[in-house]
Design a protein around this nucleic acid. Structure first.
Lengths: 141, 141
DNA sequence: ACACTATTGCAACTATGTTGCAAAATGTTA
DNA sequence: TAACATTTTGCAACATAGTTGCAATAGTGT
């Protein structure tokens, strides 16, 4: 784990600092998307609020994490898979918010479907967020 | 205009107050979605910030306006068309954000396409937000 | 016009996010 | 590994967004 995180930071040309390691750890331990507050909880008192904001921004810039738009306008972050690089995100997958457990997931294998635009409109990016009940909650209720 | 607004308020079982009239007016005058700040600008010093918050919330509850999720997590509101009623929104249309003029529109006639969910996931609501260049900006540049 | 109810404004508060700057940690080179 | 240049961090202060309780005011039905 430790090594995986260090490798990822090196690959992104970032220096290895305690806060970056700890924050990345949060993402690897949780399989769902995290809000700023979740991360603050996870890293505890160890780091300043401001550091967390700046670190998340750095990770987004470097293509390590991406933000997820949500209908209630909370800001969520999730790890990018393979195909993202600095300044160039490829998150064309659908995001899912569970109304039961309130967790948000990337459905890595569900590609955002094409949609036909009216004349005159040119689409450059499409975000799709689905809410409902996730597989875990469906299995246990 | 005045009469249209009064009728809408009556239909929604809301009392006719100056702030409600003025805020609804903002929506009818703009054809794009509005942020809280836009409305504050439009109504000027006439009403308190808090009143605007509460009025917008009331309108959402009554199915007069709906919120639009945006990738940068700004909260936007737009008028609901015909099919919405109190506690029951039907905004299954696509939303469009213009990267040039920064306005957000409801594409009333573009229905959110179906998407195939992985086993175990049950979708109840789908939000689709498209960014790009709108018809007006495409025509004038 | 009156009384009842709903709405508004004010003040205070919480949460969220940003900026400048000095101190500390990291990476690099000798 | 010691010294230096560069990043990163923490602090303080600030800015914006949104909420709540309560008293004053405005709207509604009779």
């Amino acid at each position: 784990m430790e090594q995986k995180i260090i490798d990822l930071l090196k690959r992104s040309n970032l220096s290895i600092t305690d806060s970056r390691k700890k924050i990345l750890e949060s993402f690897f331990e949780e399989d769902s998307a995290l809000a700023h507050a979740d991360i603050e909880d996870h890293v505890g008192e160890d780091f300043d609020r401001v550091t967390i904001y700046r670190t998340l921004q750095t990770f987004v810039d470097k293509g390590i994490i991406h933000t997820i738009p949500t209908p209630d306008n909370a800001v969520l972050y999730a790890l990018c898979k393979d195909s993202c690089s600095a300044g160039h995100h490829h998150d064309n997958h659908v995001h899912f918010i569970c109304d039961n457990c309130n967790k948000t997931f990337c459905l890595e294998h569900v590609v955002v479907p094409a949609v036909h635009m009216p004349v005159g409109f040119a689409a450059s990016q499409i975000d799709m967020v689905v809410s409902g009940i996730c597989n875990y909650c469906n299995a246990t209720t």
